[in-house]
């Protein structure tokens, strides 16, 4: 894998990827390099052999502060639409398309597109001191990088509207109460808890996880009739795997199954 300036990637345990945004001085805000590198890395991870779960987190005290406003020259005319098209949207699409669960370990501020990034992950684990801000409105912009979609789907319209329009800081506890994060853990437990979650995924049948991810993503927009059909397709595929046979055999023999991703 290529060397990165603004990212750190390792596989601390078999099947578990650990990805840190690594511009700690800027609370991991997105500059041109970070968005380019993140696009590249996500493309590589999609085909990474043996990877079964990914943790996405930030180095230092922030998760991701969104676009690095300091890296923008205000004198320069700039198309934000184009910036989304070329820099941010591909990241969100690739993150969502990864064929394994992605856990956001939100260690600090998740603001603007940084909040979007956390919301694009499959689940969120937050440190007690973490917080979220839909910062867009504060500088005269609108939710982007998927935030409008994720907020409405996670919270319903009214709460999404409140959060997107007031742009107030949401603490980890509030986020938990709202359903924006799955769990909150003490700051010093975040890494261990995130790894433990990822480790569980590493023992579960990968094809079933990947298909479940596809199903649930589709369910955010499709009709019941389409989902019944799609469940039929996905179950057909799952039913043809060795892992399914292993799962049933292990159940019958009252032993723990060993899934191989086949």
């Amino acid at each position: 894998m290529a060397a990165y300036e603004t990212l750190r990637y390792e596989e601390p345990e078999p099947g578990v990827g650990w990805l840190e945004l690594n511009r700690p001085e800027q609370l991991n805000a997105f500059d041109e390099t970070l968005t380019r590198e993140l696009q590249q890395l996500l493309r590589d991870l999609e085909r990474q052999e043996g990877l079964r779960a990914l943790v996405l987190t930030g180095a230092g005290r922030g998760f991701c502060a969104g676009q690095d406003l300091k890296s923008i020259d205000p004198a320069q005319e700039r198309s934000l639409g184009r910036s989304l098209e070329e820099r941010y949207n591909p990241i969100i699409r690739r993150l969502r398309a990864l064929p394994f669960p992605v856990i956001a370990a939100v260690n600090g501020a998740a603001a603007g597109a940084g909040m979007s990034l956390a919301l694009a992950c499959d689940v969120r684990l937050a440190a007690e001191s973490a917080f979220f801000v839909q910062a867009f409105v504060r500088i005269g912009l609108v939710p982007d990088s998927g935030s409008s979609f994720f907020l409405v789907h996670l919270l319903g319209y009214a709460r999404a509207f409140e959060i997107a329009t007031l742009g107030e800081r949401i603490s980890a506890q509030e986020a938990l109460h709202l359903g924006l994060v799955n769990r909150v853990v003490p700051d010093d437990r975040l890494r261990e808890e995130a790894l433990a979650w990822a480790r569980r995924y590493a023992t579960l049948p990968p094809r079933a996880l990947a298909l479940t991810k596809r199903l649930l993503q589709k369910a955010t927009w499709a009709s019941l009739e389409e989902m019944l059909q799609y469940e039929q397709y996905c179950q057909e595929i799952a039913g043809r795997t060795e892992d399914y046979r292993e799962g049933v055999a292990a159940f019958r023999e009252k032993r723990a199954p060993v899934f191989k991703g086949r």
Binding site: Y233, E236, I237, R240
Partner: peptide
């Protein structure tokens, strides 16, 4: 349109 695993089936 069906999952890639099943298009031929």
């Amino acid at each position: 349109v069906v999952p890639v695993e099943l298009y031929l089936d």
